[in-house]
Amino acid sequence: NQASVVANQLIPINTALTLVAMRSEVVTPVGIPAEDIPRLVSMQVNRAVPLGTTLMPDMVKGYA
């Protein structure tokens, strides 16, 4: 099972992602792969992401 990126805190809309804001977890459905965490740092989310939410490619500006 592949680990996905999960919000480690509430991430407000247009907030730049940080290492502290993300964690890796095996979840269903699978979201952005955990190995992409370094690439996600400083990218912005295009919606509010609640704690525990799996990050999907369409939630991160410039990711997809």
Rank of each mutant, 00 (worst) to 15 (best):
N1M: 15
N1K: 09
N1E: 15
N1L: 15
Q2L: 13
Q2D: 10
Q2S: 12
A3M: 12
A3W: 09
A3F: 11
A3N: 09
A3I: 06
A3H: 08
S4N: 01
S4P: 01
S4D: 01
S4K: 01
V5N: 00
V5S: 01
V5I: 11
V5M: 01
V6S: 01
V6Y: 00
V6G: 03
V6F: 00
V6K: 00
V6R: 02
V6L: 06
V6D: 01
V6W: 00
A7V: 10
A7E: 01
N8F: 01
N8R: 08
Q9K: 12
Q9H: 13
Q9L: 13
L10C: 15
L10N: 15
I11V: 07
I11L: 09
I11G: 04
I11R: 01
I11M: 04
I11D: 01
I11E: 03
P12A: 09
P12F: 06
P12D: 07
P12K: 10
P12N: 08
I13H: 10
I13R: 12
N14C: 10
N14Y: 15
T15Q: 10
T15Y: 10
T15S: 14
T15C: 10
T15R: 07
A16L: 12
A16D: 08
A16Y: 15
L17N: 03
L17A: 00
L17D: 04
L17I: 10
L17S: 01
T18N: 06
T18L: 06
T18Q: 08
T18K: 09
T18R: 08
T18S: 12
L19D: 06
L19K: 08
L19F: 13
L19M: 13
V20Q: 14
V20A: 15
V20G: 14
V20H: 13
A21C: 11
A21L: 14
M22P: 02
M22Y: 01
M22H: 00
M22S: 03
M22D: 04
M22W: 00
M22G: 02
R23H: 05
R23M: 05
S24W: 09
S24R: 09
S24I: 14
S24D: 06
S24V: 12
S24A: 15
E25F: 06
E25G: 08
E25P: 00
E25Y: 06
E25L: 09
V26I: 13
V26W: 11
V26M: 11
V26C: 12
V27D: 01
V27I: 06
V27S: 03
P29R: 03
P29A: 04
P29G: 02
P29W: 02
P29Y: 00
V30L: 15
V30P: 14
G31C: 04
I32D: 02
I32K: 02
I32T: 01
I32P: 01
I32W: 01
P33E: 03
P33A: 07
P33T: 07
A34C: 08
A34E: 08
A34H: 06
A34K: 04
E35K: 10
E35P: 06
E35T: 14
E35C: 10
E35S: 13
D36V: 08
D36K: 10
I37L: 11
I37H: 02
I37E: 02
I37M: 12
I37V: 04
P38R: 09
P38H: 11
P38W: 12
P38A: 11
R39Q: 10
R39D: 06
R39N: 10
L40H: 00
L40R: 00
L40I: 12
L40C: 04
L40E: 03
V41R: 02
V41W: 00
V41G: 04
S42C: 15
S42G: 15
S42P: 00
M43L: 11
M43W: 06
M43A: 07
M43H: 08
Q44V: 13
V45Y: 00
V45G: 04
N46E: 07
N46Y: 07
N46G: 07
R47C: 11
R47E: 09
R47V: 14
A48M: 14
A48F: 10
A48H: 14
V49K: 01
V49A: 02
V49N: 04
P50Y: 09
P50L: 10
P50R: 10
P50T: 10
P50D: 10
L51P: 15
L51V: 14
L51A: 15
L51K: 14
L51C: 13
G52N: 14
G52W: 02
G52T: 00
G52F: 03
G52L: 04
T53K: 09
T53S: 12
T53P: 01
T54Y: 00
T54A: 05
T54L: 03
T54F: 00
L55Y: 00
L55K: 00
L55Q: 01
M56F: 11
M56A: 05
M56W: 04
M56V: 07
M56H: 07
M56K: 07
M56G: 03
P57R: 07
P57C: 07
P57V: 06
D58C: 12
D58I: 09
D58A: 12
D58W: 13
M59H: 06
M59R: 00
M59V: 05
V60K: 03
V60M: 04
V60G: 02
K61Q: 11
K61P: 10
K61G: 06
K61N: 11
G62C: 11
G62H: 08
G62D: 12
G62W: 07
Y63C: 05
Y63E: 05
Y63W: 13
Y63P: 05
A64G: 14
A64F: 10
A64V: 14
A64H: 15
A64Y: 08
A64C: 15
